[in-house]
Amino acid sequence: MMQARRRTLATAFALIVASMLSAGAGRAQSTAALDPEKLAEIRDQNAKCFSCHSPAGLKSPPRQDMDLARLGTMLHDPALYETSSHGRVECRTCHGVGATTFPHGADLKKQVSPCSECHAAKVFRIETQFEASVHAKTQKDKFTCWSCHDGHVYNVAAKIGAPRKIIAQDNAMCLDCHNSDLQFSKFAPVEKRRPNIDAIHEWLPNTRLHWQAVRCVDCHTPAARGFSHEILDKSKAEKNCVACHSQESALRTRLYRHLVAEEQEQLGFVNSVFLSTSYVIGASRNPWIDRAVGVAAALLILGMLGHAALRIGSAWWRRRGRRPT
């Protein structure tokens, strides 16, 4: 009884904290609706940073006393940044005001604000998922949000919208390490060799086609929880094809969760929201066509059974008629 009450109180407390923190998340998201003046100011500010920290900046640096070799390791594409989810955030919001003067402080990089500063509610939610993930189990100290999400280019799935673009972005995040011995070795234990990505997915029919049509995380996260940051290794990853290849496809709560609200059962198909991107066998189904096939099969079988019964009956009748009395 006491335990139950304690659990209830803990849940209530967690909800209150989460709602307080979500105010922070609101701040992070409110940047989407900026007035043009503020937007121009942000662009001006960021242009100052990109005057050095971009390929163009490296080519013609505004100052002669810069360490160009070092600068070359810290370049960003202004166009990509502009279209990223952080595109309307000033560089100094994360990098601090120390970044606005040159030369920058020696350990400026260490002073980058943690993601939780703006994304408090998200981090709060994600942290427990991440704690259970394979990445936390094997390299907790090395792994940060940035290990996967490069804030200079990353877009949240809802902003991207088009599934193929979401897939390309999200799978690239995994493959950056899991398809590169060099990157893999930066995180993995010394004795761990990078498994060949094609070889370990050999069991999956049309492997390459899957990688164009779903994200790694659509299988490598727990099935029952919608989308999660609990990345699973191969021993726990989804291997039941029917999880996605069925009318109640898990893709509805994963890759397509941002689009499911727009589901309109186009042409009478269930999961028609997939059809703009993929035909998913077992999931892309039209109940009317299936019913028509079923009715045709039933009529055919009934017709054959009826015909056979009449044949047998009439043959018996004829034999009976010929029987001598």
Partner: peptide, 29 residues
């Protein structure tokens, strides 16, 4: 037509395949 290019191919494959199978069942009888 605004769908993945495989969609009409897949539907045609299923419907025609089903028709062939139904014919095969009839053929057995």
């Amino acid at each position: 037509f605004g769908f993945d290019g495989l969609f009409p191919v897949a539907v045609l494959h299923y419907v025609t395949g089903a028709a062939v199978v139904l014919f095969a069942i009839l053929h057995v009888y």
